[in-house]
Amino acid sequence: MSKILVVADHKSGSLKDSTKELLGFASGLGTEVNAVVIGSGVSAAADEAAGQGAATVYVADDASLEVYTTALYTGLVVDAVQQSGATQVWLTSTEIGRDLTPRVAARLDVGALSDVTKLEVNGDDITAYRPCMATKLIQQVRFKHDGVRVLSIRAGSFEVIENAPTSANVVSLFLPEADSRLEALGVEVEESNEISLNEAPIVVSVGRGAGGPDGCESVRPLAQQMGAAFGASRAVCDAGWLPHKHQVGQTGTQVKPNLYIALGISGAIQHLAGMSGSKTIVAVNKDPDAPIFKVADYGIVGDLFKAVPVMQEEVNKLKT
């Protein structure tokens, strides 16, 4: 019998949409689904996981788990795999998921599939699809071994189905020993209370065409007005015009919003690798030959400094 364990990703005490997607999709398969929630102050997230379909929620709740560390999280996930008898472990392709997925697989002495964007599941028979070669190709991949199937799945691969939390059937996990060779010194949280790129329905991004930090800032109000996350090309982040957490692309965040607006971005393959899965793309660029137009549904050949104020006016009109 196949059994799926979803490793929950959460923020400020509640489940991220990326995890809700996994729980929703897994529940729809008619397989037993459990979840593991690791962190500090996560009981509400555990109840949310239960509401989203997790039969049992394995919980590790401790101040030492506030900041992610590979050793503790690996030990806890593997413990939950063993206690639940999971035949599949599903993680999200966040930075935590990227770090944790291979370590968990290696501890279980099996292979792993990372950054999956589409899944066909029949019991433990899984065919997965994942972008490779800077998203120039899609690989169709399968597991060859009999052991636990470990995979990480990119946000936006499935629909989010919202369900009300219910009281979780909790199994508490014991803390494994920390790895004294790695000492956490702190986290520099970059400007908060912004909409995060990962899950935003709209993303407004700026490129080198914005000309400098002031140019970037002149676009920010549009993003705010649209309830959009504020993204950027690597050129913008490398120049220090915006912090790196805004970077969209192969090395930055991979986004799949309903609407992506690219302002003064040329459309290099590494940028496209992070946003060409968006449902609708609007591009504004002065250069009619900019490669971004090849992927844009609406390509505006023009100056972003002229286009942005008009867009703001139009958004105002649409909203009223």
């Binding site: 120039k136 190709l137 399968r142 060859k144 793309i281 009619p288 549904d297 390509g299």
Partner: peptide, 23 residues
Amino acid sequence: MTEVVQYEKPDERKEGRRFEGDE
């Protein structure tokens, strides 16, 4: 442990409409 069954080209995004002229 894992195998690539095959490679595919992703669904090509088709270029949509162009808008040229005054913003």
